[in-house]
Design a protein around this nucleic acid. Structure first.
Length: 158
DNA sequence: GCCAACGTTGGC
DNA sequence: GCCAACGTTGGC
């Protein structure tokens, strides 16, 4: 099995990489994804041991903050069944859950965070989805080369 | 806070 | 199954 690489977006005001580091076992469930494409990546393709670039969106400047690892493969997102949750989905049932999530664990904080500007100015990263205009997907695949390059620019080793 | 880009919903 | 209306994302 080949390890794959991903980028996941989170608003630091909601749940930052530092929050993840402080969390129990430095692990969290990635609840609240309500986009089919992002769900499919989590449900079908993310495997234990895959590595994740943890991206802070909706902040100034937006940036890659750290690296995390998938520690639990997809299972139903419990918030879809919770009527008090803003992620509640009345069309979802226990028998046929619509939304899935994975657990990720903090691995390393970026020694130098990589701003979106930096990413955009990096020719070798021009193909990264996150630098492309209008790209809203909150879970997206990253190539091994891109992942490696990001770590190098961020002076970060695992 | 604005708004462009995109995804989803629902009437027809 | 089309597409207008609406809601959300997320950079700026």
């Amino acid at each position: 099995m080949v390890r794959k690489f991903w980028l996941m977006k989170s608003e630091p005001d909601v749940f930052s990489f530092q929050d993840l580091q402080k969390a129990k076992k430095q692990t969290t469930c990635w609840d609240g994804v309500r986009n089919y494409q992002a769900r499919n990546f989590m449900r079908d393709e993310m495997k234990k041991g895959d590595l994740v670039l943890y991206y802070h969106s909706n902040t100034k400047p937006p940036h890659i903050a750290g690296v995390a690892e998938v520690v639990k493969e997809s299972y139903p997102d419990h918030t879809q069944f919770d009527a008090t949750s803003k992620y509640f989905d009345p069309k979802s049932t226990l028998e046929k859950p619509r939304w899935f999530m994975v657990d990720i664990k903090a691995v390393a904080e970026m020694k130098e965070t990589l701003s979106l500007d930096t990413l955009k100015n990096e020719a070798s990263l021009a193909e990264m989805k996150v630098v492309q205009r209008g790209q809203r997907l909150s879970v997206q695949p990253v190539t091994a080369a891109e992942f490696k390059r990001v770590l190098k620019i961020g002076r970060t080793t695992l």
